[in-house]
Design a protein around this nucleic acid. Structure first.
Ligand SMILES: [Mn+2]
Ligand SMILES: [Mn+2]
Ligand SMILES: [Zn+2]
Ligand SMILES: [Zn+2]
Lengths: 150, 150
DNA sequence: AATTAAATAGTAATTATTCTTGTTGACTTT
DNA sequence: AAAGTCAACAAGAATAATTACTATTTAATT
């Protein structure tokens, strides 16, 4: 559930993970992680790059991609490949899914424990063994609903 | 459920849809639809193009993309935007979801009525109104499971 | 301070997809 | 049947997201 870790805890966790993985927690890596952590809108690599350009004017877009991919492999951020969209990134460590507005493309976190606990259909044995579930709910967000009913 | 329409019915349906939409059912469009209809592996535009090169040597890759997008808009095929993958296409008209093998990347159809009928969490009202659900189950397919247990 | 290896910046390359433009071909009107 | 019309097409160019290359910088270690 929405038991948000305080930010400092997440940073400590990041340090741990980097130490264990034997990689350096550079200035750039820390800045990219912080930026994603405080962004609740699931930004793309390019948007993260833009948001950091004042504090880190020489930061290369390539470094943002590389760093986010590294973090993704370390399990500390998640890449989101959504319908029709470029890759987005997420630092929310809690088990959750996503709502995507078909109109404004906003991406919101969505918690659905009953689904997470539900048992898979029998027929799955004919196919393979599930490692994880990826669920997207698409529709109109409340803001767009309001606008279209004016 | 898996009540597969016979292919000829699907072709008739395609003709209907094209007539109603006021577009021509050209040789290329028919060939692309047939190819997708008999392909049960969720091919990409490029693969469809390759599979048709013997029968239609001058077919342009652009036409494949254009045609599949048109069919997608007409609701007769579905674009699949899956994790880490290029766009795939699907002509299976039945309500279903997908299993994706993390190893060999195979995509299989998956039917899960209980999920389709399940009620969304209350919290959805704080977010918006759902139009459709998109579910992917990721894991190891039976073939890859067998190979890794040798 | 010197050594070393990892990480970065800047730029080039790649790749999937879409766009542009001139041509084709099916259908209609004469 | 010839001419006209227009959607659709083929070919190649363009675009945009992402990744690769390489010389330089940084940070940890001696
Ligand atoms: Mn999220
Ligand atoms: Mn399918
Ligand atoms: Zn919206
Ligand atoms: Zn497999």
């Amino acid at each position: 559930m929405k038991t948000k870790l305080p930010n400092q805890k997440q940073i400590e966790h990041l340090k741990d993970i980097c130490n264990k993985a034997g990689i350096k927690l550079t200035h750039q890596r820390l800045a990219i992680f912080r930026e994603l952590m405080i962004s609740h809108d699931h930004p793309s690599a390019e948007i993260i790059h833009k948001r950091l350009e004042k504090s880190l004017p020489t930061l290369a877009i390539d470094t943002v991609y590389r760093t986010l991919s590294t973090f993704n492999e370390l399990g500390i951020v998640k890449k989101l490949h959504l319908k029709n969209e470029r890759t987005l990134f997420d630092a929310n460590p809690d088990q959750h899914h996503h709502f995507i507005c078909t109109r404004c493309k906003a991406v919101k976190d969505l918690y659905w424990e009953d689904f997470d606990k539900s048992t898979l259909p029998e027929s799955i044995h004919n196919i393979g063994h599930i490692q994880f579930r990826h669920l997207e709910l698409h529709g109109l967000c409340n803001r767009c609903l309001k606008e279209s009913n004016l």
